[in-house]
């Protein structure tokens, strides 16, 4: 079976002077096209490092990442990232922030007018077209994250990487944005890899949940399938036994078997 995205025996060792810390050990994972996979684990287990390796922002010490059977080891728009703290450029407007990526990715394939239309199309997808001329400082945290998602989507990535995309948002905004991401995934069929530390979020959104053991030398502890039909409705799932079972399973993994050891 040839996987769409394949993480092949990834190790990551950080070296500072004489001290070396093994952060990730032997990470193997395959992701199918159109799949929504979450990686969950306690803070400090190296999930963000793993995402950075996939994005090409950090190199793996050994092992590698294969996208459509080709090794990728430098950053590129085929693995667009939605950063945790939105990372919009404050001197550009909402429109210009999305346009920056679009101009680069579609420099040859789309005309000026087509690129403009494509930017607006993606802003419409995240319902942010009304704020096109605002600067990031003038819109709310949830809106910034929407623009961040639009920027990533507009690059037409093969894999969309979400780095705790809802972490900095309040609960209500987060729920709203989760629904939006679910709807987008349903509509566009993107392959999505999301880092999270929120159990409900992982179960609600994912097809599979990858649970990581605590670092140092974090491994993949368990992979859980979430056999819930889509589209999923937040309110209906609250009493769904499959949902509750999955949730229970993740909670057990995180809080019983791999309890976070303070100051370890």
């Amino acid at each position: 079976m040839s996987a769409y995205l394949k993480l092949d025996h990834i190790d990551k060792v950080f070296t500072r002077g004489a001290a070396t810390t093994e952060v990730l050990k032997d990470i193997n994972l395959t992701i199918e096209k159109g799949e929504y996979v979450s990686i969950i684990g306690h803070s400090g287990c190296g999930k963000s490092t793993l995402l950075n390796i996939i994005a090409g922002l950090t190199g793996a010490t050994t092992g590698g990442v294969l996208l459509e059977n080709r090794e990728v080891n430098s950053p590129g728009p085929d693995r667009a990232v939605v950063f945790q703290n939105h990372s919009l450029l404050p001197w550009l407007t909402v429109y210009e922030n999305v346009r920056l990526g679009v101009d680069k990715v579609f420099a040859r394939t789309k005309s000026r007018a087509e690129r403009d239309a494509w930017v607006m199309h993606n802003l419409n997808l995240v319902q942010m077209a009304h704020a096109r001329d605002k600067r990031p400082s003038e819109i709310s945290g949830g809106m910034k994250q929407r623009v961040g998602i639009a920027r990533a989507l507009a690059m037409e990535p093969k894999v969309l990487l979400l780095d705790e995309p809802f972490g900095a948002l309040d609960a209500l905004t987060r729920a709203h944005l989760q629904d939006s991401v679910m709807a987008l995934h349903q509509k566009l069929g993107n392959t999505i890899l999301m880092i999270t530390h929120d159990v409900d979020e992982a179960v609600l959104l994912s097809d599979r949940i990858v649970m990581m053991t605590n670092g140092p030398s974090a491994r993949i502890g368990e992979v859980l399938e979430v056999p819930l039909a889509r589209p999923r409705k937040r309110l209906e799932l609250a009493t769904n036994t499959t949902y509750l079972k999955c949730r229970q399973r993740v909670l057990e993994f995180l809080y019983e078997r791999h309890r976070f050891v303070e100051a370890a």
């Binding site: 994005a55 922002l57 950053p75 590129g76 667009a80 990232v81 950063f83 990372s87």
Partner: peptide
């Protein structure tokens, strides 16, 4: 310059 901006530039491949 925040690392975030450098990451954005890297992903967009400026």
């Amino acid at each position: 310059i925040p690392q975030d901006y450098r990451n954005v530039a890297a992903v967009v491949q400026l």
